[in-house]
Amino acid sequence: TYTWNTKEEAKQAFKELLKEKRVPSNASWEQAMKMIINDPRYSALAKLSEKKQAFNAYKVQTE
């Protein structure tokens, strides 16, 4: 089980997950979700809006 003390740690864990699963920077949210949804870190960020925000930040960083 994973635990995160801060929102920032949770966001980092979520981005690490995207990186580890090699989600391409041109992937849509739907494509990315299919690649990461079974990992416990997918739940790091509770709100869908937070997940999408972190995903978009990840995409910008990896382009």
Score class of each variant (00 low, 15 high):
T3I: 11
Q53P: 02
E8R: 07
W4S: 06
K21S: 10
N56F: 10
Y58R: 00
K7S: 07
T6A: 04
T6Q: 04
V23H: 01
A13Q: 06
F55N: 01
L18S: 00
K15G: 14
R22H: 12
A46F: 06
Q31D: 12
K7C: 08
L45C: 04
V60P: 03
A54L: 07
A57G: 05
F55W: 07
Q31A: 09
K15H: 15
K7P: 15
N5A: 15
F55G: 02
Q61C: 11
V23Q: 01
N56K: 12
K7H: 12
A46G: 13
A32P: 00
Y42T: 01
E8K: 09
N56D: 13
K51T: 02
S25R: 13
E20G: 04
Y2M: 15
S25E: 07
K7G: 07
N26K: 07
P24A: 06
K52L: 12
R22W: 06
E63L: 11
S28F: 04
Q12K: 11
E30V: 08
K19C: 13
P40C: 08
Y42C: 03
M35H: 06
S25T: 14
E30W: 08
N5S: 11
A54Q: 07
A44F: 04
K52I: 15
S28G: 05
S25N: 10
F14C: 02
Q61Y: 09
S28D: 09
M33Y: 08
L17G: 00
T62Q: 14
A46Q: 15
K11D: 14
A13S: 08
T3N: 11
E16K: 05
N5G: 11
I37G: 07
E63A: 10
N26W: 14
F55P: 01
I37P: 01
V23Y: 02
L18Y: 01
E50K: 03
E20S: 06
S28M: 07
A13T: 06
N5V: 12
L18K: 00
S28R: 08
T62L: 15
S49E: 12
R22P: 03
W29Y: 07
E63G: 12
N38Y: 08
Q61T: 10
K47D: 14
L45M: 08
R41V: 03
A57H: 10
W29D: 00
Q12I: 12
E63D: 13
L45N: 01
Q53V: 07
Q61S: 14
T1P: 15
W29N: 00
K34R: 12
W29L: 03
V23S: 01
N38L: 09
E20W: 04
T62Y: 13
E9K: 04
Y58M: 03
N56C: 11
K21A: 10
V60Q: 14
M35V: 07
Q31K: 06
Q12Y: 10
E9C: 06
K59H: 04
L17T: 01
Y2A: 15
L17F: 01
N38H: 14
Q61E: 15
S25I: 14
K51N: 02
L18V: 02
L48D: 13
L45R: 00
A54V: 11
E20Y: 05
N38P: 04
Q61D: 14
Q31M: 09
K52R: 09
E16I: 05
A27W: 05
K19L: 11
W29M: 02
Q61P: 05
L45H: 02
N26D: 15
A46H: 09
I36W: 01
K15F: 15
W29H: 01
V60L: 13
E8D: 08
N38S: 14
E63M: 10
M35T: 05
A10C: 08
K51W: 04
T1Q: 15
I37H: 14
L45V: 06
Q31T: 11
E9W: 03
T62M: 14
W29R: 00
K59D: 03
K19A: 14
E50T: 03
S28I: 06
V60N: 14
K34P: 11
E20P: 02
N26L: 05
F14A: 00
A54P: 01
I37Y: 13
A44D: 02
S43A: 12
A46M: 11
T62D: 10
F55H: 03
S49V: 06
Q12E: 13
A10D: 03
E16P: 00
A46N: 14
N5Q: 13
D39F: 01
V23F: 02
L18A: 00
Q61I: 09
A27C: 10
K34M: 14
A27L: 08
A32V: 07
K11M: 15
A10M: 07
A57K: 10
A32C: 12
E63C: 13
P24K: 04
W4F: 08
L18W: 01
N56P: 02
S49H: 12
R41W: 01
E63N: 13
L45F: 04
K34Y: 10
L18R: 01
E9L: 05
K47H: 13
E9N: 08
F55R: 02
A57D: 15
A54K: 02
I36T: 05
W29A: 00
T3A: 09
K34A: 13
A32T: 06
K47P: 08
T6F: 04
E9D: 08
M35C: 07
I37K: 13
E50S: 05
Y2F: 14
K47T: 13
A27K: 03
W4T: 07
L17N: 00
N26F: 09
M33F: 05
T1C: 15
Q31S: 09
E16N: 08
K21V: 07
E9I: 04
P40K: 07
K59M: 07
A44H: 04
K52Q: 11
T1D: 15
T3C: 15
E63Y: 06
A46T: 14
R41K: 04
Q12L: 13
A54D: 02
I37D: 11
T6P: 03
E30Q: 10
A54M: 09
N26E: 09
K34T: 12
K52V: 12
Y2I: 15
E8L: 07
L18P: 00
S25D: 06
K51A: 04
K59T: 08
K47I: 06
T1I: 14
K52W: 05
E50N: 03
A46Y: 09
Y2H: 15
K47C: 13
K7Q: 11
E9R: 02
K52S: 03
M35W: 05
N5L: 10
R22D: 12
E8V: 06
N56G: 08
N56V: 10
E8Q: 09
L45K: 00
D39N: 01
F14Q: 00
P40L: 07
E8W: 08
K34L: 08
V60M: 13
E16V: 05
E50L: 04
A44W: 03
S43H: 15
S49L: 04
A44S: 08
T3H: 13
K47N: 12
Y2G: 15
T1W: 09
I36H: 00
